[in-house]
């Protein structure tokens, strides 16, 4: 049976936590993100601990330290994705440029998750 546990953490805890998990040989499963009902960006660092996913959540921070120097590409691609989909800036992340969004869509970065669908249609289709 797969399990899921969620924890709230602060911005300054991200890097020490990643270093600790890496040292323990724990896999970074994914970095997820969404925008909550108050319009705040939420980023979840998810680690695989046995059959449990531990999800460490940071709310309301548009700039976060990158953990790509600890988890390499396993962190770099998810961070780049969150930059492109939600406009979160990861300090220290070596950006490859556009990775997931086409150049023609919202200039290839930023706001697709943040913007309501009706406004996206106006921007992209000129409706």
């Amino acid at each position: 049976m797969q399990e899921f546990k969620s924890f709230e953490i602060k911005k300054e805890e991200i890097v020490p936590l990643a270093e600790k998990k890496k040292k323990e040989g724990i896999r970074l499963l994914m970095i997820q993100g969404y925008v909550d009902k108050e319009g705040q960006v939420v980023v979840c660092y998810q680690y695989e601990v046995g059959n449990c996913i531990e999800s460490y959540k940071i709310t309301g921070e548009a700039e976060l330290p990158s953990i790509s120097h600890i988890y390499d590409l396993a962190a770099a691609w998810p961070e780049e994705e969150l930059y492109e989909l939600m406009g979160v800036n990861f300090q220290g992340l070596e950006m490859r440029g556009r990775l997931f969004m086409p150049d023609t869509t919202l200039e290839g970065r930023g706001q697709i998750l943040v913007t309501p669908l009706s406004e996206l249609k106006k921007k992209m289709l000129g409706e």
Binding site: R98, F100, P102, I112, L117
Partner: peptide, 18 residues
Amino acid sequence: AEVFIGYNHRGIEKLATQ
């Protein structure tokens, strides 16, 4: 080598919220 992807974003995650 470099690899470039993301040429066909379909917005399925966004659509799923509706």
